[in-house]
Design a protein around this nucleic acid. Sequence first.
DNA 1: CAGTATCCCTGTTGATACTG
DNA 2: CAGTATCAACAGGGATACTG
Lengths: 145, 145
Amino acid sequence: MVHADSQDPRAAGHQTETHGWDAELVPDERGRTARPEPDCPVEVALAAISGRWTTLVLRELMHGERTFSELRAALPTLSAKILTERLHELTARGLAHREQVNAFPPRVGYRLTAAGLALRPLLICLYETGAALSRSRAGTPAPPR
Amino acid sequence: MVHADSQDPRAAGHQTETHGWDAELVPDERGRTARPEPDCPVEVALAAISGRWTTLVLRELMHGERTFSELRAALPTLSAKILTERLHELTARGLAHREQVNAFPPRVGYRLTAAGLALRPLLICLYETGAALSRSRAGTPAPPR
DNA sequence: CAGTATCCCTGTTGATACTG
DNA sequence: CAGTATCAACAGGGATACTG
């Protein structure tokens, strides 16, 4: 899907020496920011997956609806505080939806909304890119700081 | 490109109700982590673009080689300290390369390596995903915290 | 079960000033 | 030009304990 494993920089294709904007990388005005503006699409996407554990919670929810304790079981070392925080963020951003189940014992289910499912290609792209980086330098020099 | 506008979650397609792993989302063992492991491909990719300003510095370098002051001019509100820090991180990770130019005045140029150019599809994916999110909820509820 | 409430600690950022 | 040094301020994360 993604051409990330070419060895020759030039063969990778897209680098230009012009000082103009690259239409594929920066298709419109919102991408030409001189600062990290919250409404830049890149910042919007980063905000959606920001925070430790968020991508893992998203991965779990990509598989279908999950209850609070199913999520805790899948991610045992994630504290209740942070899980709650992440689920609140996701619901506040309209990426997930909370559903009360009136049963005994009472349960709460979380499922992704259509907008949340839109993050799926991004997670796949992150995985592919990370795998390509690991391949291109099997021994990473060092984790900075 | 991204199917984010379907109203029915079921119709959006990929969500399965199985508790097994999704081969497209989690192709191999490294993606089945129960914690944010540094060697999970997703974490590797996130680490590569982590830090405020990093995606903007990458955007500039995607256009070709840039000197320290060209970068400062393109991103005027980015302090020298942080720019230096970002450039060090990128070079330490093998994503960028530093080149001394013996001239007068002496200059230093930075350009992306092949590994750095491999981040291009990710930046594009971030942009597209963010744009799709902005479209699907024109008025984002609220920036959490 | 599904959360809240505190406290503390650490990393990251940014402003400012200085240097080879 | 291309950085480094220092410091102050803050936000995020985790441990622990408690609740409707």
